[in-house]
Computed example of a mutant assay.
Amino acid sequence: MGCAIIGCGKSLPALEVRNDELRALVDTNDEWITTRTGIKSRHIAVSESNADLGEAAARRALGWMCGGFAECRIDAADIDLIVCATVTPDAVVPSAAGLLRRRLGLTRAVAFDLNAACSGFVYGLTVAENMMAASAPSTAGAAGRNPVRRALVVGSERLTRLTNWSDRNTCVLFGDGAGAAVLEWDDARPGIISSYIVNEDDATNALTCAMSFDAPQPFDENGISHTAARSDDPGLARTDAELGITELVEAGRPRQTLYMSGQKVFKFAAEAMTVAVHQTLQRANLSLDDIACVVPHQANERIIKYAAKKLGKPMDFFQLSIENTGNSSAASVPMALADAYAEGRIRPGDKVVLVAFGGGFTSGAVLFEA
């Protein structure tokens, strides 16, 4: 018995920006970007919100719109849980999942957000599967828990809103989009067979993005102060120092933007991805020969090539969707999963590994049978 994926869908913003168009912003070109990343274009949300993208992906996964994979149409009343993985929600309150609950009319669902950066969707699947298993009728103590029979897990991002478009080393990498999956507890199917999630400290600040708080605060160390209400938040100074961006912010660089050391991230990601795949297979007593394909986080084609070499598998063993999406953080894996279904790469009975890595550092994998 297990937690089966019975639907998935994706959504991309209308605006597609090709590599050569970025020459208007930074010193770059198509050849430079393509050879280093595998990216040819990315989609940028200009008028679409995070919720707009997530809603469209969810509707396809639920079988309410064409363009996705859905074993059947799921009624709104049959969704018990919504987990939204994102680092770019439209609001702090309500949550991105709460907005989706309201828009989709999922009135029975418990809804909350999860931030594990680019690994968010894999973490979200793991959380949802554990909640479903804990409340399954055959589980001891299930009667005392909220029953979760069907869940909606969404990864939705507007990562380009955190992108520094004057930094040629990072701005070429990122894009926006959303992906979603519907899970169902089914006693007759294996579903999710194993999972593995892990965190490591990003001790060298290889990938960071600070928050900016701009609401005036009429206080200083001595109490109420009207002059303090017009000053910057001094509490951010410690965070800037901890993230190693003090000098950059003081020099005028934006605080709430992505700062990345590409070499350090590459080193972490390549190792983390291979470890996560091996650990997930080991927990299931399976090997790569038992797997139909691997759907990895689409951060950089070079990272996937490195992992393919380490795993001893050809590149066609991996789902590649990065060419026209770029790195879309938590939306990356579910969008690539939707592509794999659309391309006929996943058939009933196939075993598939989803694997991701992200800032924090986070990494993990999920092994499921379709």
Rank of each mutant, 00 (worst) to 15 (best):
residue 1 M to T: 13
residue 6 I to H: 02
residue 8 C to K: 00
residue 18 R to A: 11
residue 18 R to D: 05
residue 19 N to D: 03
residue 25 L to C: 09
residue 32 W to N: 10
residue 35 T to C: 13
residue 37 T to R: 11
residue 41 S to R: 13
residue 45 A to F: 07
residue 52 D to N: 10
residue 53 L to A: 03
residue 56 A to Q: 12
residue 57 A to R: 02
residue 61 A to L: 07
residue 62 L to N: 09
residue 65 M to C: 13
residue 69 F to R: 00
residue 70 A to V: 03
residue 75 D to A: 14
residue 78 D to K: 06
residue 81 L to N: 06
residue 88 T to I: 03
residue 89 P to T: 02
residue 91 A to F: 15
residue 91 A to K: 11
residue 92 V to P: 15
residue 93 V to R: 09
residue 94 P to K: 11
residue 100 L to K: 05
residue 101 R to I: 03
residue 103 R to Y: 03
residue 104 L to N: 07
residue 108 R to N: 14
residue 108 R to Q: 11
residue 110 V to W: 15
residue 111 A to C: 03
residue 112 F to T: 08
residue 112 F to L: 09
residue 114 L to T: 14
residue 119 S to I: 07
residue 128 A to I: 02
residue 131 M to K: 13
residue 133 A to L: 15
residue 133 A to K: 12
residue 135 S to W: 00
residue 136 A to Y: 13
residue 137 P to V: 10
residue 151 A to Q: 03
residue 155 G to M: 06
residue 156 S to K: 09
residue 158 R to A: 01
residue 160 T to C: 12
residue 162 L to W: 02
residue 164 N to E: 14
residue 164 N to G: 09
residue 165 W to A: 11
residue 165 W to Y: 04
residue 168 R to C: 10
residue 170 T to L: 05
residue 171 C to P: 03
residue 171 C to H: 06
residue 172 V to I: 12
residue 175 G to K: 06
residue 179 G to K: 07
residue 179 G to H: 06
residue 181 A to L: 06
residue 182 V to W: 11
residue 183 L to N: 07
residue 186 D to N: 06
residue 189 R to V: 13
residue 194 S to Y: 05
residue 197 I to V: 15
residue 201 D to I: 14
residue 202 D to A: 07
residue 202 D to S: 09
residue 203 A to M: 14
residue 203 A to R: 15
residue 207 L to V: 07
residue 214 D to M: 09
residue 219 F to D: 03
residue 220 D to V: 00
residue 233 D to P: 10
residue 234 P to W: 01
residue 235 G to H: 10
residue 241 A to L: 15
residue 250 E to A: 08
residue 253 R to E: 04
residue 256 Q to V: 13
residue 266 F to W: 06
residue 272 A to W: 01
residue 273 M to C: 05
residue 283 R to D: 11
residue 283 R to H: 14
residue 285 N to F: 04
residue 293 C to H: 14
residue 295 V to F: 14
residue 302 R to W: 00
residue 302 R to V: 00
residue 303 I to C: 04
residue 307 A to S: 01
residue 312 G to I: 00
residue 315 M to N: 07
residue 316 D to C: 13
residue 317 F to M: 13
residue 322 I to M: 04
residue 330 A to L: 01
residue 331 A to Q: 08
residue 333 V to F: 02
residue 336 A to M: 07
residue 336 A to L: 01
residue 345 R to V: 08
residue 345 R to Q: 05
residue 348 P to H: 01
residue 351 K to E: 14
residue 351 K to Y: 13
residue 352 V to C: 08
residue 359 G to F: 05
residue 365 A to T: 06
residue 367 L to F: 10
residue 369 E to L: 04
residue 370 A to Y: 14
residue 370 A to E: 07
